[in-house]
Amino acid sequence: MAAILEIHDVNKSFGGLRALWEVNLTVEEGAVHAIIGPNGAGKSTLLNCLVGRLKPDTGTVLFAGQPVLGREPYEINQMGIARVFQTPEIFEDLTLLDNVVIPAMAKHDGAFRFSPWQRVSARKELIEEAEHILEDVGLIEQRNVVCSSLSRGDKRRLELAMCLIQHPKLLLLDEPTAGMSRADTNNTIELLKKIGERGITKVIIEHDMHVVFSLAHRISVLARGTFIAEGTPEEIKGDPKVQEAYLGGAHA
């Protein structure tokens, strides 16, 4: 398998704090790659660098062979990278259906298309697709509800649907099951497994080891801004460094 994402020597400091330090990571196409690590390790910062929210001080990032750094967030998304944020980012005062139709439009129409005369309701194929995705994540009954009333777990699933409808090549998930009940977490695992079959590469940040070990093909461990280990789930489970930095420390 070819590498879809290559991160080379990325550094990022906030004032005196070194949030990322000589970070290198390669993600294989089609893989589910988990990044684990204690709170404040720099996991979200790394994703922020990938989607254009933050600009790293040094380093390069290649996505499907194309440089990513220095591009606008919308350009990066149009390249095929979608992201679920750690705190749900959705269109709070629009309906669920609108929330999913908008990313579908962005995918079909590109970054800008001036269509003040075309009714949204005339775009039957987009609406149908949006309804399918809402069904997949189990939110179809609430399609005409305004999102601000959703629970945190539902918002997360909605955000996942917003990413899935774009058929991204790479999906970045920042703690997709945080705030979900056990049952919802299991549903999400099933859902993520299902979309795994569609060949979407996933980078998933997660504290919940149950989720990590049921999904990941590879795991990288980030601690204090740098990767200290990488391997298959079995290798990581047995790695004493990881035990010390993370599994043993935070979750003892």
Binding site: Y74, N77, L94, I102, Q166
Partner: peptide
Amino acid sequence: AIKSNQNRLKYTGVN
């Protein structure tokens, strides 16, 4: 969508 969450819209591929 801009009014609701312009940031989200940018990460959704919209200029």
